[in-house]
């Protein structure tokens, strides 16, 4: 089977130190990968390189067989990125934020309005649509953040610590939004929350010191307890 994203020999060097060192893996359609690992392992760096926010020191990332670096603008059209930072403008209203990003992704204005209405409703933000984003609670902002990332119907959804600062109810709504969108082919998440991450993924990768130390499909791992033991071993051992 042909991978949707192919990562080969990826390196990233920051001030003489390799944050990511020779990472290679393929990502196939319908995969929800969660990258686990201790602080400073290089998880976010990998995600940012896939998102084109960081330029790799060496290595190639291909999307659908095309080298991403050679088609950056087309690649960005395929990517949605959600971070613990909300990426939303506090002085703009909920719908103004979505309209701005929709226009940046060249969505036709009639289609954009339809999408905005639909997504605001799905995210349960109807009563806040004319409110300034800055007045929303953390959970509501994160809902807005996810629909902002999905407004252009990306086929790749990248999630960087999306649970930060969310309560249980907000996490549930957030997961519904992420899991129930049909146009996303591939999801990659970075998480420190082992249980949440394990529950939503269908493939787990553990990164340590910029290298992959574990990469298995969820059905090959077993229970969460087994995975937790595995993580504890991987995070601590040298």
């Amino acid at each position: 089977m042909k991978p949707y994203i192919s990562i080969k020999g990826l390196f990233k060097k920051f001030e003489g130190r390799y944050a990511v060192s020779n990472i290679s893996f393929d990502i196939f359609n319908d995969e929800f990968i969660v990258l686990f690992g201790p602080n400073g392992a290089g998880k976010t760096t990998i995600l940012k390189m896939i998102a084109s926010l960081l330029k790799p020191t060496d290595g190639v990332i291909s999307i659908n067989g095309t080298n991403m670096e050679k088609n950056l603008i087309e690649a960005r059209q395929l990517i949605g990125f959600v971070s613990h930072e909300t990426f939303i403008y506090e002085n703009l209203t909920v719908e103004e934020n979505l309209r701005f990003f929709g226009k940046m992704f060249d969505i036709d204005s009639v289609e954009l309005e339809t999408r905005i209405n639909k997504m605001i409703e799905e995210a349960g933000l109807c009563i806040y649509r004319k409110e300034r984003a800055g007045t929303l609670s953390r959970g509501m902002k994160q809902r807005l953040s996810i629909i902002r990332a999905l407004i252009h119907k990306p086929s790749i959804l990248l999630l960087d610590e999306p649970y930060t600062g969310l309560d249980l109810n907000a996490i549930e709504v957030f997961e519904n939004l992420v899991l129930n969108n049909s146009h996303t082919k591939v999801k990659i998440m970075v998480s420190h929350n082992l249980e949440r991450g394990f529950n939503v993924c269908n493939r787990a990768i553990i990164i340590k010191n910029g290298k992959i130390t574990f990469d298995k499909k969820k059905n090959e791992i077993g229970s969460y307890a087994d995975f937790k033991t595995l993580c504890e071993f991987n995070f601590q051992s040298n």
């Binding site: 998102a51 087309e74 971070s83 990426f87 403008y89 506090e90 990003f101």
Partner: peptide, 14 residues
């Protein structure tokens, strides 16, 4: 504020 510069950098534009 809120890392919006990254959201702009992720848009399909130069």
């Amino acid at each position: 504020e809120n890392g919006c510069i990254n959201a702009l950098k992720l848009c399909p534009a130069q």
